[in-house]
Design a protein around this nucleic acid. Structure first.
Lengths: 160, 160
DNA sequence: GTACTTTTACTCGGATACCGTCTGTCCGAGTAATTATGG
DNA sequence: CCATAATTACTCGGACAGACGGTATCCGAGTAAAAGTAC
């Protein structure tokens, strides 16, 4: 039970796309190079982000990807759902009801209620942060100079 | 990213063992039959619970398993760790630091801090419930009559 | 110079292979109670 | 009747097979800009 690496890669990609000037786009392969992910697999991740309406794609020559929403409206939880889907962390097998030989009732599982509560608390934290707050942290701290280098790199690689 | 079914099976097993009289034990295969799990695989789960000091095993003829701790001292989180291990839900790949070309610092990842906070909230809920509270819920509600049947079954199957 | 075609550089989506993990099975070894055996 | 051996019924732990999902690769199709071509 561990989160996919795709979530971290996606968050990173969204942070990069956030630094793009308005109307500019960045090809998927360029992003994958910077992130160090396999190009073909990373493209699939980007398509998931497109399906989830987090980014927009532009086909054809001079095509690429760009943020669709404002970064403060893309929570880390949104990214998680886009990559991993909406399935909950726990799904009851109804074993406890089976053992008691009680009638199966989808809402009755003693464990399910607890697990849902736990997951809700987990989600709440993930919803409390977004791409904008991540960028903000990056700007505040020791990353400042590195961020400048990244911006420079983006202006070289982007296409209008 | 989903919890193993072994966790639910283990919780159920612990609830069954809780109903055992003092000093009595229940063989692993008997429990697996009631739970409807594959006997051999279920034995492996029980051994994990033994390793985690949640239950005690008695070898030899008239052997079996019995709770080691009091049920109120076995949280659902204890069961989770026993079955799935202590690894956290999220482990950073350091991608964000890589992209920034900053020096890798295990504590520096922007995402890691958030994810740890989320997991902590999740754990807190799982630690708030234990085998005793689960039994209590079972006794309160509509399961009362079924619980009696289960106790009857246990007295038939247990060995002293 | 304009209209059309070709090339180029992308995204899109499916099919497929690899690999690690969870599930499930099998086997030999160890352990302790019960039963059988020999005096 | 007592001591010892054999049987029985368990746990223990490793090795291994199958299923599944995440990772990764490849390919053909679609799309749009740019470049080339014909008049």
């Amino acid at each position: 039970m561990q989160m996919k690496t795709g979530v971290e890669q996606s968050v990173c990609a969204l942070m990069i796309l956030h630094m793009l000037p308005e109307k500019a786009v960045l090809p998927g392969e360029v992003i994958s190079q910077r992130i160090g992910a396999s190009p073909t697999y990373f493209q699939k991740l980007l398509r998931k982000l497109v399906s989830a309406d987090l980014i927009t794609s532009v086909a054809g020559s001079k095509g690429g990807f760009r943020l669709k929403r404002k970064p403060e409206h893309i929570s880390i939880y949104d990214v998680y759902v886009a990559v991993e889907g909406q399935q909950s962390l726990y799904s009851s097998c109804g074993i406890i009801e089976d053992v008691l030989q009680a009638t199966k009732d989808s809402t009755s599982c003693l464990l399910t209620h607890l697990m849902e509560e736990a997951e809700h608390a987990w989600q709440k934290t993930l919803k409390s942060a977004n791409i904008a707050t991540m960028i903000e942290q990056m700007s505040h701290e020791k990353y400042k100079s590195y961020q400048e280098e990244l911006k420079q790199w983006i202006t070289e690689k982007m296409v209008m």
